[in-house]
């Protein structure tokens, strides 16, 4: 199969890669860039474990074709935080007890991050909407919403 050459910004760095066109963004990130924080839970856009930020918006990377991100900007959890410091969201997830099994956590963080970038002072309902596509079977979401709320800058 003819490979497609694509360039995009990944966690702040410009990258170029050749990919078979029938690869999902999810697989491109996990296999070609070893960003295994991006998880597969269903492969149908229904669980949100594979959420990444694409051009400032949270999307399920299992429903995006890898070559579609040509010239785009992609952020995964590996791109959160700066200079080895945790992002405020990550800190609050830890403090508030928002992490249990951790499988939904990277996707949750990214959905929250995309929200806060657009809307730095969201209401509790807006937070719930932002993570409505991220299923979690452990926490009952309460501590996740609490953590996102706690991370809102004064």
């Amino acid at each position: 199969m003819e490979k497609v050459k694509i360039s995009f910004k990944l966690n702040g760095e410009n990258v170029t890669v050749e990919t078979p066109p029938n690869k999902r963004l999810l697989d491109l990130l996990r296999e070609d860039f070893e960003l295994t924080s991006v998880k597969e839970g269903c492969g149908e856009g229904e669980c949100g474990a594979c959420t990444v930020i694409l051009n400032n918006e949270a999307v399920t990377s299992c429903t995006v074709l890898a070559p579609q991100v040509d010239n785009c900007e992609v952020v995964t959890v590996e791109g959160l935080g700066k200079d080895g410091e945790l992002d405020k969201l990550q800190e609050k997830f830890i403090e508030e007890g928002a992490v249990q099994c951790g499988y939904c956590t990277p996707g949750m963080l990214l959905s929250a991050k995309a929200l806060l970038e657009k809307n730095p002072h969201p209401s509790r309902d807006e937070i719930k909407t932002a993570i409505e596509g991220n299923l979690c079977r452990c926490t009952g979401y309460k501590k996740i919403v609490d953590a996102i709320e706690a991370s809102i800058e004064e």
């Binding site: 508030e96 007890g97 249990q100 979690c136 079977r137 452990c138 926490t139 009952g140 979401y141 309460k142 501590k143």
Partner: peptide, 9 residues
């Protein structure tokens, strides 16, 4: 926190 997390879930 762990106990609450179990309860809420």
């Amino acid at each position: 926190k762990n106990v609450e997390g179990q309860i809420e879930g």
